[in-house]
Amino acid sequence: MRKISMREAVNEALHIAFNSDSNVFTMGEDIAVYGGQLRCSYDLLDNFGPERVRDTPISEMAIVGAGVGASMIGKRPVVELSYIDFIGTSFDQILNQAAKMRYMYGGHVNMPLVIRTQCGAGLGNGAQHSQSLEAILAHIPGIRVVMPSNAYDAKGLLLHAIRDNNPVVFIEHKALYKVKCEVPEEPYEIEYTPDVKRTGKDLTIVTYSAMVNRSLEAAELLQKEHGIEVEVVDVRALEPLDMEPIIRSVKKTNCAVIVHEACEKGGFGGELIAQIQQHTFKSLKAPILRVAAPNVPVPFAVNLEMSYLPDKTKITKAVMTCLENKKANA
């Protein structure tokens, strides 16, 4: 099968969505002529015209807010925030408008809104363009949070999100855009459920977004060098959070390590750990560990940024520690 990058997969999903439902449209900064700062919306303008592919002023509050309003009357906007860091300038529309409408108005409002954005560090974009803010969003009842880890998942999850009648923040990690994998040409959907990316019997890594690849690298290394079989579960959707596959895995391996790029404190790992221990307490043989960024903003200098990011080495170390604890408790 052909291999395409996550950028191409997102672009393809957008083309499919535009072609399938005339209610779908997109707006954002520099997305039309320029093809987006995320470089995912190229060709859309040529194929679907300026009515449905709209460059906006630099006005994130209005971009998200107009998306909220349009979706309330039945349009299916896919708006783009060029960096997740800009939820700052649009947050009221996410927090108090998009997330609240359906519930607050007694279930009478549908909100088929997708906010596409990019997250993540590693490319020297500095403190205000590199954050991983998914936990802030996942904390708000009423908005979905989806984070693909590869091109195949991105295409299917994005189409699922666009067909969702609820607001979805769809977060693409910037380091994944160029990574290729096999992606079928035809439309398909992927549901909001975790995916086991590698099977193993010794330990479960629960992770998502760019850290899936880091975890797979660690798993590969552990297998080669120590014969350790790590299972890697990709959460994919933080809301709705389907714990079932994660619980099943941990019940099998009896221990778990959580890996995410966001800083540790208050990160989504805390939620995962709470739920895992609640449902697997009897089978757990070791404290659940977290591998995450330290609790500081993303630094600029290359050596600082690299040591900020969770990587194969840190993951491997956590896995070894966890397995030692497991052995001690066996």
Partner: peptide, 13 residues
């Protein structure tokens, strides 16, 4: 991104 930079390399351009 050097130590002697205005922000000790933490800020950038």
């Amino acid at each position: 991104g050097r130590e002697g930079g205005y922000c000790k390399g933490k800020g950038g351009s």
